[in-house]
Structure formats: structure tokens, C-alpha cells
């Protein structure tokens, strides 16, 4: 094993050196490396503003390493193990926290999280929540005049309207829907999937494909978030897209960050986690990540967000239950939907 690794390293190292040695910049300030997902660090995401703001107060250099999504983050941490460069990992959700904790790489956050504005009590001492939202079906009000009023109506209704969902094997919203149906229907989830199946126009690899097909007009309904319409209102100035609120309740996604035990900058990492949940960072998130902030930021929350309807019931499995049952429930889903 060790010899294999050494050979591999020699091969990779050799070719790397051979090709181009990127000049290493002399670093004077301490560097804080944050692993996150791609859209977080894009110029429309929260990354640039957070970086500028935090660097102004920390005398450090904040560096983002952007991966595809939350699942990719966990896989990367597992691959790199104790050798990881990351000081912070940002962008996992509660479906993935139990497994991430099992890597033994996550250090207690050590931040006082008083006065969070989450719909539930936050007891996790390792992961810090930084934004959250509800999964929901978003519909196009120009195409669909009488949308289903409940999950039951969607599940039991006729073969229309068509919906676009994501694959739970490759995407976190897709996994969220599997959990959602399981929370509402319990053991009867397979029957619910069977009812939903004729309405599924297609199942995509990720959120981007699904949302793109939806705005192209391929289907009037797509699995997304209750906060998605806020984007269309704020940026495009249109009320055309709305989220469906179901009385059965909506499954939540809480996005979290944590620091790593292997970090050489534990204080700096802790300071970043504290910053992330501070009002200064929280007011950046709604209009960049289009999710709810975890604190009450008062007038800094755009009126479009305040006006969004909120579900009466929030559904969320514990991290442990989610991790334990995920494989079985995906199989259950697959058995019905691949018929």
C-alpha cells in the first residue's frame, strides 16, 4: 500500500514538476483555507463579500477551494483524511453531518450560538448553521393556474402537471425529497412515489439541470426551495414563479460549516465560524445564496424574503436517522421509479 502510494506520488509529482511549477507566493499573513461549493464562491455568491469583510478584520488571507457540492466536500475530506489542507468546511447539510463527524476530522465549533432564528433548537456542538431553507415545488404561474394545494393532491392527482426532480444518488435536493416523502408518508413512502411517478417528466443529475429545464418551460413544476421565488422578484422583478406551500409540512435544508481538528489555525477558524453567524455575514446571505439567514437581521432582510409564505410545519430528520436510512430509502425510491 505504502509503496503503491509512493510510486503514484512519484508519477504525479514528476509530471507536475515537468510541466509547470506555479510560483509559490511568499505568504506573510496566516492563510485560512475554506472548502466550499462552486456557486458559493462565484461573483454572485456570498464568497467575495464575505472574504473582503472577514479579511478586513482578521489580518489573514482567506482562500476558497470550490468543489461541486456538499456531497463532493465530504468525499474530498474522506479522501484527504488528516492531510487535508482545509481549516474550514462550509456547505454540508444536516443529511451529511453524521457521516462527516465520523471521519474524526471535525472539531467542536466553540462558538456561542445564542438567539438563532431557526425553526428548531440547534444543539450540535460541532457544526455551525449559517443558512437554511425549505425544499418546495416551485411553479410557473403563467403555465399552471390551479396548482396542487397539498402534497397529497400532488401525489394522488392525475398524470399532470409534470414535475422535474433531481436524482437522490447525485444531488442533495433529490435526497431531500426522498427524506420529505419518508417524513410525511413513513412506511407508505413507496406508494407515494408510485403515485408521483407518472408526473415525473424527468430526473436530473443536479439542481442546475432541473431548474434550467423548468425556466425553459419544459415542466410547470420543479423541486427547489421556498426561497427561489425571491431571486426572481429581486433580480428579475417578476412574480411569475411561486413556491407551493403544503399543509403536510416541508422538509428543511440547513447548511452548516465546521472547523477541522487538523487545522493549524484553530483560533482563526473559530473566529471565522463566529463571523459566519454574525449579523455582518448573515445579511450577505439572503441575496447571494437565496436562503434564510440563521439570525434575525431585522431590516437587512429584503422585504421579498419577509413576504415569502412560510410552511406551517417544518420537517427534518435527525442527522443520525438520515445517515442510517439513506441507502435503504434510495433503494426504495429506485425500485419504484425505475419501473
Amino acid at each position: 500500500m505504502m509503496r503503491l502510494r509512493a510510486c503514484m506520488t512519484a508519477l504525479i509529482g514528476g509530471s507536475t514538476l515537468l510541466l509547470a511549477a506555479t510560483p509559490a507566493l511568499a505568504q506573510e499573513k496566516p492563510v485560512l483555507t475554506v472548502y466550499t461549493y462552486n456557486s458559493f464562491t462565484s461573483e454572485w455568491g456570498p464568497g467575495p463579500a464575505l472574504e473582503k469583510d472577514f479579511e478586513a478584520q482578521c489580518a489573514c488571507d482567506l482562500q476558497w477551494v470550490a468543489l461541486e457540492d456538499g456531497a463532493a466536500l465530504l468525499a474530498r475530506l474522506k479522501l484527504e483524511g488528516r492531510n487535508t489542507k482545509a481549516d474550514i468546511v462550509l456547505g454540508l447539510d444536516t443529511n451529511l453531518t453524521a457521516e462527516t463527524r465520523d471521519t474524526g476530522l471535525i472539531a467542536p465549533h466553540g462558538v456561542t450560538l445564542d438567539g438563532l432564528a431557526l425553526p428548531l433548537d440547534w444543539a450540535d456542538t460541532d457544526f455551525v448553521p449559517y443558512d437554511w431553507g425549505y425544499f418546495a415545488f416551485v411553479y410557473d404561474s403563467e403555465k399552471l393556474t390551479e396548482p396542487p394545494r397539498s402534497l397529497a393532491e400532488l401525489v394522488d392527482g392525475k398524470d399532470t402537471p409534470k414535475i422535474i426532480i433531481q436524482d437522490p444518488r447525485t444531488s442533495t435536493p433529490g435526497l431531500g425529497l426522498v427524506m420529505w416523502l419518508r417524513e410525511v408518508y413513513g412506511e407508505k413512502a413507496p406508494e407515494a412515489w408510485a403515485g408521483l411517478q407518472p408526473k415525473i417528466l424527468t430526473v436530473t443529475k443536479g439542481w442546475s439541470e432541473a431548474y434550467g429545464l423548468f425556466t425553459e418551460g419544459e415542466a410547470p413544476l420543479v423541486l427547489s426551495y421556498t426561497t427561489s421565488p425571491a431571486y426572481h422578484q429581486i433580480v428579475e422583478g417578476t412574480d411569475r414563479y411561486k413556491a407551493l406551500l403544503f399543509p403536510e409540512g416541508h422538509y428543511m435544508q440547513i447548511e452548516v460549516a465546521a472547523r477541522l481538528t487538523t487545522s493549524s489555525q484553530p483560533e482563526l477558524a473559530q473566529a471565522f465560524l463566529a463571523y459566519l453567524t454574525s449579523p455582518a455575514a448573515q445579511k450577505v446571505l439572503p441575496t447571494t445564496n437565496y436562503m434564510y439567514p440563521v439570525r434575525d437581521i431585522g431590516k437587512d432582510l429584503p422585504p421579498e424574503f419577509t413576504a415569502l409564505p412560510r410552511p406551517e410545519r417544518s420537517l427534518l430528520l435527525s442527522a443520525e436517522d438520515a445517515a442510517r436510512n439513506r441507502d435503504d430509502w434510495i433503494r426504495e425510491w429506485l425500485a419504484v421509479v425505475s419501473q
Binding site: T9, A21, T22, R76, L79, N83, K85
Partner: peptide, 19 residues
């Protein structure tokens, strides 16, 4: 996946990203 597994702790892949 193989590259990251092999390089972990040996080569700083982030520094030689372009290569």
C-alpha cells in the same frame, strides 16, 4: 479520486493546480 488518494499528504495539488 485516485489522484487525490495518492497525493494526499505528499503533493500539494492546490499549488500545482494549473499543471
Amino acid at each position: 479520486t485516485g489522484i487525490f488518494l495518492a497525493a494526499s499528504g505528499r503533493v500539494d495539488l492546490y499549488r500545482h493546480a494549473a499543471a
